[in-house]
Computed example of a mutant assay.
Amino acid sequence: MCPNMAISEARGTFVIDPALCTECIGHFDTPQCVAICPVDDTCVIDTRVPRYQA
């Protein structure tokens, strides 16, 4: 679901590559990892990264 191919699986855990992640800005209103994740509050948006928009 990631438009930037930033999500991969490593040993049964999904990992987001911060170098590829744009939080779907310009693609979707909500980051797709957050929208589709079956476990609440596991996709954490890093507010220290300049691409973050409140």
Rank of each mutant, 00 (worst) to 15 (best):
M1D: 06
M1E: 07
P3E: 00
P3A: 02
P3W: 03
P3N: 00
P3F: 04
P3I: 01
N4D: 06
A6Q: 00
E9Y: 00
E9N: 09
A10N: 15
A10I: 13
R11T: 11
R11C: 15
R11I: 10
T13W: 14
F14P: 09
F14L: 15
V15Q: 00
V15G: 00
V15C: 01
I16G: 01
D17H: 01
D17F: 01
A19K: 06
C21P: 02
C21T: 08
C21E: 00
C21V: 07
C21K: 04
T22R: 03
E23P: 10
C24R: 01
I25S: 03
I25Q: 03
I25F: 02
G26I: 05
H27Y: 13
H27D: 08
T30A: 13
T30G: 12
T30C: 12
P31W: 04
Q32H: 09
Q32D: 09
C33H: 06
I36D: 14
C37Y: 05
C37G: 07
P38Y: 03
V39A: 08
V39L: 10
V39N: 06
D40R: 07
T42M: 10
T42K: 09
T42E: 08
C43R: 09
V44D: 10
V44A: 08
V44L: 08
V44P: 12
V44Y: 11
V44G: 09
I45D: 11
D46E: 03
D46P: 00
T47P: 12
R48A: 09
R48E: 10
V49F: 02
V49T: 07
V49N: 08
P50Q: 07
P50T: 05
P50F: 02
P50E: 02
Q53R: 11
Q53V: 14
Q53N: 11
A54C: 13
